[in-house]
């Protein structure tokens, strides 16, 4: 028997304001609103690319390479004559795909391990935290290089590397906030009522740290996008002909003096996505948990 979903989401805010109040405050919250708009632009671009792009993104037309912006090609063409707008739209898709899967990996394993660490304490907690410190010592780029050496470069490699890189952060955030919940009196009361640590974790700890995890996931999403761009730029991530913002940057670097705008477009796209998600995360932090906002 668990509380209805709508009720628990409404109750994320201590003192549980009604959901309508949340949206009213959300729209008035400047960084949340701006972050949401920017993030939706990126998401919209990715969705749009599934059904429509101005030009086929994979069509190479060397004859019309490096065209300046025109009515036909709004932002011009790249060195292979591909339409920049189309590349950016399809690139958004890779970006979001990598971000979602990598953060998914990080959330699943990180939150799981963090919850176990907080519930079990003792040597289990110690072991999980040491392992997570160890993993944290390897940045995504380093693990991607090592993974690429074994499995070859590519999207799967970069997703895996970024995902693994995300785990320790989620472990720490989860364990920290879960420990705080475990110290609350209602957990003691729940234990006094005979609940085991699994039930307490699912029914008391997780719902109470959900807002923190949502905020963290948003910020980790931005980090994943940056990592994906970096890996693609280094040639370890998304492989041609699959377009990606990082690859576009890589292609553009040889022509930096000839056509600097080729680097600016994907750079701006990455900046918009990262900025949007960070603003969104900050906004959510304020909106979901006023206590957190005050602590900063």
């Amino acid at each position: 028997m668990s509380a209805p979903l709508t009720a628990s989401t409404a109750a994320i805010t201590p003192g549980a304001r009604p959901v309508t109040g949340f949206w009213r405050r959300a729209l008035r919250h400047r960084s949340f609103a701006l972050g949401a708009v920017l993030s939706l632009v990126v998401l919209g671009a990715a969705l749009l690319s599934l059904v429509w792009t101005p030009w086929p993104a994979y069509d190479i037309d060397v004859a019309s390479k490096l065209r300046p912006p025109s009515a036909a090609h709004w932002l011009g063409t790249d060195v292979l004559g591909r339409d920049i707008v189309s590349l950016l739209l399809v690139g958004a898709r890779s970006t979001i795909l990598v971000g979602v899967i990598a953060v998914g990996i990080g959330l699943t394993f990180g939150v799981g391990l963090g919850l176990i660490a907080a519930a079990r304490k003792g040597w289990t907690e110690e072991l999980i935290m040491r392992m997570s410190d160890f993993t944290f010592a390897f940045p995504a780029v380093l693990s991607a290089i090592m993974l690429a050496a074994v499995a070859g470069p590519g999207m799967v490699t970069s997703i895996t590397a970024i995902g693994i890189f995300q785990i320790p952060t989620f472990v720490r955030v989860t364990r920290g906030s879960a420990n705080a919940i475990w110290a609350r009196e209602f957990v003691l009361a729940a234990r006094a009522a005979g609940k085991g640590s699994f039930r307490i974790t699912i029914e008391h700890v997780l719902p109470n740290i959900l807002s923190i995890l949502i905020v963290q996931a948003t910020i980790q999403f931005a980090l994943a996008i940056l990592a994906e761009a970096a890996l693609s730029y280094l040639g370890l991530g998304t492989q041609p002909p699959q377009p990606s913002w990082g690859r576009m940057l890589n292609d553009a670097q040889t022509l930096l003096f000839q056509s600097p705008m080729l680097a600016v477009y994907p750079g701006a796209a990455i900046a918009i996505a990262v900025l949007g998600l960070n603003l969104l995360g900050d906004g959510l932090r304020d909106l979901l948990d006023p206590r957190l906002a005050r602590e900063r």
């Binding site: 549980a16 009196e185 209602f186 006094a192 005979g194 029914e203």
Partner: peptide
């Protein structure tokens, strides 16, 4: 112990404001 707590031995705490989980009815 879980089988005993809440079943054969129960406890009431000092702080009713914090002894209930805010997320559940």
């Amino acid at each position: 112990y879980c089988k005993l707590r809440g079943n054969r031995i129960s406890m009431i705490f000092q702080e009713p404001m914090t002894a209930l989980n805010p997320m559940h009815t």
